[in-house]
């Protein structure tokens, strides 16, 4: 078979790969019960990312945002798959009252949240980034501040506003 079109997969020792592996490892720490290894997760992400045109190099801050989005996509896909299995259902908002007692997200809410994350990232890329890396990938506020070259205070403020908004979206507060 010809190898005429070398695929643009980052080499596994490259910076992009390391960056993503770190992401996956952090995620992995948060979900110790799964055996999907960080490496395997990165590969899932790589496959996703490489379906996208124009992937920037890892030195580009944009790369981490893209990679994060891909990683999030992998997680959401898995959740969506489960949801389809269970309900064959569509996404819908869950009324506030039902949620009050719960401490976790239903699969539907999880997918709603994902949608809201996309909106958030569109309104403000940094806010989206901060939430993704903390809430989703389990990075500490310091780590995120370091990545973004901003103060931890800024990250905290971003996070508080973004989370409040996300919670309102997921809880079904109507938007005008």
């Amino acid at each position: 078979m010809s190898q005429s079109a070398p695929p643009r997969i980052p080499s596994l020792s490259g910076d992009e790969y390391k960056a993503m592996l770190r992401m996956a490892e952090s995620l992995h720490r948060r979900c110790p019960s799964w055996t999907l290894s960080p490496t395997a997760l990165v590969h899932e992400v790589l496959i996703k990312v490489h379906a996208w045109p124009g992937l920037p190099p890892s030195s580009d801050p944009h790369f981490m945002a893209l990679a994060a989005r891909a990683m999030r996509q992998v997680l959401v896909d898995a959740a969506r798959k489960k949801l389809e299995v269970k309900k064959g259902g569509r996404l819908k908002f869950v009324p506030l009252t039902e949620r009050a007692q719960r401490t976790t997200l239903s699969p539907v809410e999880f997918l709603d949240l994902n949608q809201a994350m996309d909106e958030l990232a569109k309104m403000n890329a940094r806010h989206g980034f901060v939430v993704t890396y903390t809430s989703w990938f389990g990075y500490t506020i310091e780590e995120v501040a370091e990545m973004l070259k901003v103060s931890t205070k800024t990250v905290q403020r971003d996070l508080r506003a973004a989370n409040a908004w996300l919670a309102s979206r997921v809880s079904g507060t109507p938007e005008k």
Binding site: C31, K81, K82, R102, L105, S135, A161, A164, W165, A167
Partner: peptide, 23 residues
């Protein structure tokens, strides 16, 4: 947002982890 902030949003963070785990 203020309403949610008052209730606390830690469930979001935990919820994501749990949902991912469950997925």
């Amino acid at each position: 947002m203020l309403d949610e902030d008052r209730r606390g949003v830690s469930w979001l963070r935990d919820g994501v982890a749990a949902a991912v785990d469950r997925a």
